[in-house]
């Protein structure tokens, strides 16, 4: 078995008396597509906040690319190749789409010249299908375009791992297909993708491996088929009568 790109070990997080997460162990292999599911309040967002540096775990360690990043601030994790998008899009309002992507290029990219930077931004815009919106203010984008911008911004940081937090919430079926195709294309370019999602058919189509969380703990882990068949997952998440 090859070495994990990302290894989460015995991570726990509590907010006062509320135990939000843990203990949790998660591994992510290079180029893998991992789905994380679970009911609301199960600890999905807390887990990715711990991984991306927005929460500091109470215990445990997080190792990424062979380096312990448990105490590394979020911005340095982004520079180190760990990008994330947000559940609710957070565009840089007051900036154009192009400028939105310049921010991660400025702070994360190894581009040496302004020309290289601009070329890279153009490439990212092309890959997410936002070329025509290049100079539009972020305020004027549609919901789908905002989701794409969120992903594009994460991509501009040249990530090794992309954590997509409910990147398809609120989208139509056609739009979900659009975002799924985009994530698959990214993954094909070598980026490992962690997808946190409530839209089950999207997670099952996308993921090679799925983890189900409940009250902060992993209750099931396996292939999409194994997860759907798991009685525990059915009980806490799908409901007893759910069919695939």
């Amino acid at each position: 078995m090859s070495e994990s790109l990302l290894a989460v070990r015995d991570v726990r997080k509590a907010f006062g008396p509320i135990k939000a997460l843990g203990p949790v162990d998660v591994d992510l292999m290079p180029g893998e597509r991992l789905g994380i599911i679970g009911p609301n309040g199960s600890g999905k967002t807390t887990l990715i906040n711990c991984i991306s540096g927005f929460h500091r775990p109470d215990t445990g360690s997080i190792v990424f690319r062979g380096e312990d990043i448990t105490r590394m601030p979020a911005y340095r994790r982004a520079r180190f190749g760990l990008s994330r998008s947000f559940q609710i899009p957070r565009p840089f309002l007051g900036m154009s789409v192009f400028e939105n992507l310049l921010v991660p290029m400025d702070y994360c990219s190894s581009a040496e010249t302004e020309k290289e930077e601009i070329e890279r931004v153009e490439q990212v815009l092309e890959s997410v299908g936002l070329v025509e919106r290049r100079d539009h203010p972020a305020e004027l984008l549609s919901q789908l375009e905002l989701r794409k911008l969120e992903l594009a911004r994460a991509l501009a940081a040249r990530p090794r791992v992309l954590i997509a937090d409910e990147a398809m919430a609120g989208l139509s079926e056609a739009e979900i297909d659009d975002v799924l195709a985009l994530l698959l294309k990214l993954n094909a370019s070598g980026v490992a993708v962690v997808m946190i999602e409530h839209i089950m058919h999207a997670v099952m189509r996308f993921s090679q491996r799925v983890i189900c969380l409940e009250t902060g703990k992993i209750i099931a882990e396996g292939s999409p088929d194994e997860i759907v068949a798991s009685p525990q997952v059915q009980k806490v998440y799908f409901g007893e009568q759910t069919r695939r």
Binding site: S52, G53, F54, P73, A74, Y75, R76, A78, R79, S83, R84, S85, F86, R90, P91, F92, L93, G94, M95, E99, L102, V103, P104, D106, Y107, C108, R153, A154, A156, A157
Partner: peptide, 24 residues
């Protein structure tokens, strides 16, 4: 400059700025 873009990113959303590598 890149400093100004960092400032404006902070103004728009500090978490998103941090996730984009900006040392907020």
């Amino acid at each position: 400059s890149w400093i100004g873009r960092g400032f404006r990113a902070i103004r728009a959303s500090e978490p998103a700025a941090e996730a984009s590598g900006v040392p907020t």
